[in-house]
């Protein structure tokens, strides 16, 4: 009983902001600022459908573009980062090569680098090759996922018996063939986890795309909503459209895909998250 009360309290705490977001999404600007019913209940005007219509048509439907961009960046960045992590993790786990220990030390040290230190030099570098304000400026840097490599390495070390690899080699399989037929299937659980983690990482990314993109057409949804927030609060930016309603509904719509993805894929990632910690 006590356990259930505790859980209910936790659930209320974790869902309260979402409840507010849902309620606020149904209000027009007037309802948001001077509506009836207060912040946690519905206004007498139910404007959800008007807001939805506005959200998907405002500025020629730019919001849909932002969602599409987020999907593109997260899918390509996530898939790319996962592919690199699988290869590298396998390489680190199952081969000895010169510079291996140094590389590992570098890899593990790299997670302590503050991102702000990287943004300006990355911007300078990308602009020298004319890549700022292109999709590559977002996708290529998000291929970097040192933690994913580490995760794959830890997992591969235990999950792939050396004997199996040797047997394949004895049978005359090349290294690539051995990797694809023997190692890769065994790595799948960890691969799904790394994929999800890098997908989320890219989807949530904000400051790198903010710095390297200037065209609204290329923004991911986080940066787009940030732009609207800035416009809404800088008085001269809004014109007469209620950006607050759009920001609130836009936030709600943007988090739905990820929540759905997580909830429906939970059996794949739940075990994987513990890989780094379980011996």
């Amino acid at each position: 009983m006590g356990a259930h009360v505790f859980l209910v309290v936790l659930v209320i705490y974790f869902l309260l902001p979402l409840w507010w977001l849902i309620v606020a999404s149904t209000k027009d600007a007037h309802g948001l600022f001077s509506g009836t019913g207060g912040a946690l209940w519905f206004d007498k005007t139910f404007a959800l459908f008007d807001n939805l219509g506005l959200l998907f048509t405002y500025n020629d439907g730019i919001y849909l573009r932002w969602l599409g961009n987020s999907v593109l960046y997260a899918v390509s960045g996530g898939a790319g980062a996962t592919a690199l992590a699988i290869l590298a993790g396998y390489g680190f786990a199952k081969f000895a090569f010169p510079g291996r220990r140094l590389s590992l030390a570098l890899l593990l040290g790299s997670v302590m680098v503050p991102l702000t230190a990287l943004v300006i030099p990355t911007f300078a570098m990308l602009s020298q090759v004319g890549m700022t304000n292109t999709i590559w400026a977002v996708i290529l840097p998000s291929l970097l996922n040192p933690f994913g490599v580490y995760l794959m390495m830890v997992y591969a070390t235990d999950a792939i018996p050396d004997e199996l690899l040797d047997a394949a080699r004895v049978d005359g399989a090349g290294e690539l063939r051995t990797f694809f037929t023997v190692a890769l299937p065994l790595l799948r659980p960890a691969a799904v986890t790394v994929l999800l983690l890098s997908f989320v990482g890219t989807w949530n990314n904000y400051f790198l795309p903010l710095a390297v993109l200037s065209s609204n057409n290329l923004f991911p949804v986080t940066v787009g909503l940030g732009l609207w927030d800035g416009l809404a609060n800088s008085a001269s930016g809004t014109g007469t459209t209620s950006l607050w309603s759009l920001i609130i509904l836009g936030s709600l719509v943007s988090i739905i895909p990820l929540i759905v993805a997580f909830l429906s894929l939970q059996r794949y990632w739940r075990g994987g998250l513990a890989v780094g910690s379980l011996k």
């Binding site: 007037h30 008085a235 001269s236 930016g237 809004t238 950006l243």
Partner: peptide
């Protein structure tokens, strides 16, 4: 400013 506040309903 009036433009801004019109956006707030």
């Amino acid at each position: 400013e009036p433009g801004h506040l019109t956006g707030a309903g």
